[in-house]
Design a protein around this nucleic acid. Structure first.
Lengths: 113, 113
DNA sequence: TGCTTTTGCTAAAAACATCAAGCAAGCTGC
DNA sequence: GCAGCTTGCTTGATGTTTTTAGCAAAAGCA
């Protein structure tokens, strides 16, 4: 939100790229990149952030977040440590309970050879 | 990507809202809303899309996608029409199978009073 | 040294998003 | 009919994003 410019610059330098190389490879003008890195643009378009994210090999959400755009929750929560199996199911209708029980006994039998 | 304007209008109408009501509740000017719905704005800001998504009770990603912005993969994957219960589980380890069977018999017994 | 290229930058302009103000057609109640 | 309100819309102004053209310092090379 505040300082994404410096962040962009540091990544670019780590990747050993010049402004004009980024222009060529990501399709964003070097003039504009300079402004971005020097904090002269408040909210660059998602499309441009996407191009940069791809070239720099960072995530699009990361850049969106740093720039201060709302980011869908699904994308920012660090994928939960696999929850208990039954919590992956959500609320079950009776039909679904049936289906599951069938399914599980099916697996179980198959395993027992 | 093409016709998100009509989409916005149809949602607003389904919700029974006027342009000025949306202005009051979402904080986006009625003038601008009119332009949005009539296809006169190409890339509305994520911030405004977010406000509308909240008021209309649709997902932010949905609007972003319709407008033609890139959407993080993490956010677009898990949106299939509710699949069969067992498909919501993914691959199961043996431990997980155990757990699930316990869980289901627990539910079942509870229901039977 | 002098010439060319590279690099980051800025200035100016084009394109676009957004809002405040205000207009015209459609109501409603008198 | 007409006064007032509501609704969607357009216009004009303002600010922002993005590009094109070009500059100055540094680096490379003859």
């Amino acid at each position: 939100m505040t300082n994404y410019g410096e962040y962009l610059r540091s990544i670019r330098q780590q990747r050993g790229l010049t402004l004009r190389e980024v222009e060529a490879q990501a399709g964003v003008s070097n003039a504009y990149l300079s402004q971005l890195e020097n904090g002269k643009v408040k909210q660059p378009s998602p499309s441009n952030l996407y191009k940069l994210a791809e070239l720099y090999n960072v995530t699009y959400e990361d850049l969106m977040e740093r720039v201060g755009y709302p980011v869908p929750k699904a994308a920012q929560e660090p994928r939960p440590e696999k929850p208990m199996a039954h919590n992956r199911l959500g609320k079950l209708s009776s039909d679904e309970e049936e289906e599951l029980i069938d399914y599980l006994s099916f697996i179980r039998n198959r395993k027992k050879r």
